[in-house]
């Protein structure tokens, strides 16, 4: 399945909806959207991940890249990720970089 990342910025919050497979080939597309959000100096980044089928090392690394670009005081939410993606995030320590939630309340 192809990967899509669609960005929407409302006030200080950047929301990116992800779908498909996030790997080394598709990670640059997400990175590009994150960079747009960085330029807008957002206060929060919310990634809607329920449509993600797969996330490999390169995909996880975009999360880290986002944190570094946005700064320590900008929270990153990963919303509704599937169980195996959550598991991978936890076991590899990426859960310390982002906030994992089931649902996102505005």
């Amino acid at each position: 399945m192809t990967f899509t990342a669609s960005l929407e910025i409302v006030d200080d919050v950047a929301k990116i909806t992800l779908a498909g497979e996030l790997d080394a080939a598709t990670a640059p597309a997400l990175k590009e959207e994150v960079e747009k959000a960085v330029k807008q100096k957002v206060k929060r980044l919310v990634l809607f991940a329920s449509g993600l089928e797969y996330m490999a090392s390169a995909g996880l690394r975009v999360l880290l890249f986002s944190k570094q670009k946005l700064g320590a005081d900008v929270d990153i939410y990963v919303v509704g990720a599937q169980e195996f993606i959550l598991e991978t995030l936890e076991k590899t320590g990426f859960d310390q970089t982002v906030i994992l939630v089931d649902k996102y309340d505005e």
Binding site: A56, L60, T88, K91, F94
Partner: peptide, 9 residues
């Protein structure tokens, strides 16, 4: 996470 090749992390 060995099955995902993530053992290093």
């Amino acid at each position: 996470t060995g099955k995902f090749g993530m053992q290093v992390d």
